[in-house]
Computed example of a mutant assay.
Amino acid sequence: MIHTFSISSSPAANLKTNLHAYTPTITISTNTNFLVDNCTRKITSPQIKKWVIQSSDNPTVVITSPPDDAAILESASSVVRKFYQGINRRDLVSVETLIAENCVYEDLIFPRPFVGRQAILEFFMKFIDAISTDLQFAIDDISEEDTSAIGVTWHLEWKGKTFPFSKGCSFYRLEVVNGQRQIVYGRDSVEPAIKPGETALVAIRGVAWLLQKFPNLADWL
């Protein structure tokens, strides 16, 4: 989101310092001696505040295109963090606005995905009704770079202590719906209580051998 500022020759007493605090990088353009003639440079909002305060002996800074905070999209990672925070607070009202109407949510311990916002909220209602409020999600790591796809590793904690067999890895895809980023797809993979170890490799090898010998079995997958 780009905003252009101009310089006018108003007295220093008219200096306007009531700028909105916001985070995106913006562009300032000027052709006065306050900065280099005809230069354009990118600066962040904390620098703007400092620049305005330090320019009390210079012309007034006039915002020709004020920022619209409502138009600034929330980051995908922030939406996902709010999703977990809402579950931890048992606040499904706040979670509802983060989920798209046609969202598809897969928890891999269930045979079928939950399709649609209402079905997903009903699942989480059963989840929070089944566990104590002392059991909370704790995010270990979350991706920040992509604006539409977010990976999260997490675990559960009981009164601040790690709960056994509770590690998980989740993936979320988000889209902008009516000017707001919402989750349109989610998948959870949770640590199993029984860990087969190398036995799992033996089972995979056996299934692969059967498929090679009897290709028609693939129709049953």
Rank of each mutant, 00 (worst) to 15 (best):
M1H: 10
I2E: 15
I2A: 14
H3E: 08
H3Y: 13
H3A: 06
P11N: 10
A12R: 10
T17G: 11
N18G: 11
H20G: 07
N33Y: 11
L35H: 12
V36F: 14
K42V: 09
K42D: 08
Q47G: 01
K49R: 15
W51N: 01
V52L: 13
S56I: 15
N58H: 05
N58S: 06
N58K: 07
D68Y: 01
A70K: 15
A71V: 07
A71L: 15
A76W: 00
S78E: 02
V79K: 00
V79D: 01
V80L: 09
R81I: 07
K82E: 13
K82G: 07
Y84A: 10
I87F: 03
V93C: 02
V93W: 01
V93R: 06
S94Y: 08
V95I: 15
I99R: 02
A100T: 04
C103F: 03
V104Q: 03
Y105P: 04
E106H: 02
D107T: 07
I109C: 14
R112M: 12
F114M: 14
G116I: 06
R117A: 02
E122C: 07
F124C: 10
F124S: 11
A130N: 12
S132K: 09
L135I: 15
Q136K: 14
D141M: 03
I142V: 02
I142K: 01
I142M: 05
S143G: 02
E145I: 04
S148I: 05
A149S: 12
A149N: 14
I150G: 00
W154V: 12
E157I: 06
K159L: 14
K161Q: 13
T162G: 05
F163A: 08
F163W: 08
P164V: 05
P164T: 08
F165M: 05
F165E: 10
S166I: 05
S166P: 05
K167L: 12
C169P: 01
Y172I: 04
N178P: 01
N178C: 04
V184G: 00
Y185R: 03
R187A: 07
V190C: 11
I194W: 12
K195W: 05
E198F: 10
E198R: 15
T199K: 10
L201E: 14
V207D: 05
P215D: 08
N216D: 15
A218M: 08
A218N: 13
D219K: 05
W220H: 08
